[in-house]
Design a protein around this nucleic acid. Structure first.
Lengths: 251, 251
DNA sequence: TAGTGGTCTAGACCACTAA
DNA sequence: TAGTGGTCTAGACCACTAA
């Protein structure tokens, strides 16, 4: 049956109905929705239309699907990433958010570091002020919270800065990469963070086990030493549905 | 015809093919792709499958559809939003980005301010330290670049701070809301910005005329005076596909 | 007015889940 | 092994665009 002219969109009607039922508590966080086939009967619509409605709710971050199991109501409990921890700790405290976030007691766990010594891509080469033939060290790792992958990080350091330091090893020692750079005379004095938000590629979806239609944040951090040289570039991909990004700064 | 077991996903094959053709320059930025019906013939697939492929490319920000006209290759030219302009101007300069952004000469134009005097919602009330019955001033406006809406901003100021000042008028005078707050003895001394990234609601899609499946950034800025009181909350919705958000800070 | 993307129907088979 | 979401077929009519 074709659409009646002027009629409200069928899939939106179904999405609105389900959203209301979720908000009213008929389906609390974690609950399973009726199966697609059951919704087809209940709302007298075709499978594709019901899927479109569920897809709209997924886009809003309200529900997620698990293959072979069903559609579930999602609970959003964000990880608060505070880019300027030191500054905020003494001056701001932890309160004040319209999203009512609380102190985060969950642990961020890395699941293995990959260290590579390779020529960098053209973008990385350019911001590090290197030439195409120069080698860089790439330190890549994935982070998980409660066993769920939330973040992929890849750090790039020019060879002439990392050479002969523990930056080239799995365990970089106390203070990590930045402490080693400081010892080598390239202490990071300031940082820049550039953020983009977009839909993930297929490989990013696999890597972070993203539920369909979850956006990612692409966050690139540049570390500058006292001379203004970029001594490290860190490119991160975050599961946007799990993060609240926080920046505190003076007027 | 059903799927062959183990076969690569048909819609991904088509998406990969089109992506390669775009990257190789067969379809340059701004170009129109073949129609859906033409692609159905060319790739011998059904309409739904071709749409799924185009949808995947749209999710990556590579193409966008215009009703009644066709699918077009998108050109991404980000607006660089630097949260700490003063700091960055003297110390960082404008270079250094893996996205090769350049100085932005396009103008950000507001298309009308709505000023309302109303009781705020529970989240706003809480962060402003008010009670449910208190009134606030809400200043809402939309911003456009080259005629394209990119940002919706809604600023909330407690009545006892705005009362009797030009904050309650369309033209707030030189220095804007923050200058008026300073004159009233509530000068903003520091700021917090909280960012979330998610898919837009239906009304946000309309308001910002978002191409399907473009995420938004929900950015909330809190302004604190010297006593630590929140004197203003500004909730912004950004078209994520058009923005690069930049934060500079010391080590 | 011819052509376009948007929505919708009514099915089918697949890999996967959970008991 | 019964049931689930994921993908796919092969059509249809609609509002809208652009000439």
């Amino acid at each position: 049956m074709p659409r009646k002219p002027g009629a409200p969109l069928r899939y939106r009607e179904i999405a609105d109905g389900l959203r209301r039922r979720i908000e009213e508590g008929e389906f609390p966080p974690g609950a399973r929705l009726p199966t697609e086939r059951a919704l087809v009967n209940e709302y007298t619509a075709s499978p594709g239309t019901v899927r479109a409605a569920l897809g709209a709710l997924r886009d809003e971050g309200l529900v997620e699907s698990r293959v072979g199991s069903g559609w579930y109501v999602r609970s959003w409990r964000p990880i608060v990433r505070n880019a300027l921890k030191r500054l905020s700790a003494d001056q701001w405290g932890e309160g004040n958010s319209i999203w009512g976030v609380d102190i985060d007691d969950r642990e961020l766990v890395a699941d293995g570091v990959q260290i590579e010594h390779l020529p960098a891509g053209p973008e990385i080469v350019q911001v590090l002020g290197l030439s195409e033939s120069d080698l860089v060290w790439r330190r890549s790792r994935r982070y998980l919270v409660d066993g769920v992958p939330v973040l992929r990080s890849a750090s790039y350091i020019p060879d002439d800065l990392a050479h002969g330091t523990r930056i080239t090893q799995v365990d970089t020692g106390p203070g990590g990469v930045y402490a080693r750079l400081a010892e080598a005379g390239f202490k990071p004095m300031r940082f820049r963070e550039d953020l983009r938000c977009r839909m993930p590629s297929a490989s990013e979806m696999d890597d972070l086990q993203l539920a369909g239609s979850t956006p990612v944040v692409e966050l690139v951090r540049y570390a500058y030493d006292a001379t203004g040289r970029v001594v490290e570039v860190n490119r991160m991909i975050l599961d946007a549905s799990r993060y609240l990004l926080r920046y505190d700064f003076p007027s």
